[in-house]
């Protein structure tokens, strides 16, 4: 029943299917998903925000109740209509966001290949970010107290650029939200990142010159073979 409903909703909203790992990295793709506790975390958030809204509604109601009772029938009618509209809106949004939580948890993919990352999330607003390891600047790991209890953490992978503090929707950030193996993911990304000498912006100081062209190495190799042949020829005489 649930999967049928979900299928219908996703179809209606034209949510694109699971993302494919980008080209040119055969077999190296690894897909991470949010931990199972992430759903509970989202439900807790949902409950908290709706509970807050409910309290706010009750406060407004109790403040308005006295003036309405003593007011004219006309103002009373207007107030009651307004209140019922607000309550209906609250109930509808609560029900809708409740349904959304599960899908939001299920429709998240964090793809890591040997040269790039792709993070997809969202139902109403679908968001996908692709970036290569060559452009990664830093990796952050964060977890709040409640997330810690649930064994969750967020891994943020930043690429260069002026991503302002716009929170979760901030640009230049690939967020692995609510993963239960955050340190593993971080180590996985860092291990792959380490293979790139020139990742991100800025020069790295090389203690020894490692870079030289293939041509010079081939030339040196040619001298070596020539010297070997010369010695062999001399030794034979």
């Amino acid at each position: 029943m649930y999967s049928w409903l979900q299928h219908k909703i996703l179809d209606l909203m034209k949510v694109p299917p699971e993302p494919q790992p980008p080209d040119g990295s055969a077999g190296s793709a690894r897909v991470f998903r949010s931990g199972s506790n992430y759903y509970r975390w989202r439900m807790a958030l949902w409950f908290a925000s709706n509970f807050g809204a409910l309290i706010l509604l009750a406060v407004v109601w109790s403040i308005l109740a006295r003036p309405i009772r003593v007011g004219t029938p006309w103002s009373r009618f207007i107030a009651e209509v307004l209140m019922s509209v607000v309550v209906t809106a609250f109930l509808v949004s609560a029900a809708f966001t409740f349904l959304q939580q599960r899908m939001n948890y299920e429709l998240r993919w964090y793809v890591v290949t040997d040269r790039c990352l792709r993070v997809r999330s969202g139902i109403l607003n679908v968001h996908e970010i692709t970036t290569t390891f060559a452009n990664i600047q830093e990796v952050r790991l964060s977890a709040g107290p409640l997330q810690k209890v649930l064994g969750l953490a967020d891994v943020e992978v930043h690429s260069a650029g002026g991503g302002s503090g716009k929170g979760s929707s901030g640009s230049h950030v690939a967020r692995f939200e609510g993963v239960d193996n955050a340190s593993e993911i971080r180590d996985f990304i860092l291990a792959r990142l380490r293979q790139y000498r020139d990742s991100g912006l800025g020069e790295k100081d090389h203690s020894s010159p490692v870079a030289f062209s293939d041509g010079s190495q081939a030339a040196a190799q040619a001298i070596l073979t020539e010297a070997r042949a010369l010695r062999a020829a001399l030794a034979q005489r």
Binding site: D114, R115, T132, F133, A134, N135
Partner: peptide, 11 residues
């Protein structure tokens, strides 16, 4: 993506 830096030079 195919034109991005780092999309073709694997590790």
């Amino acid at each position: 993506y195919s034109r991005m830096r780092g999309a073709h030079t694997g590790p």
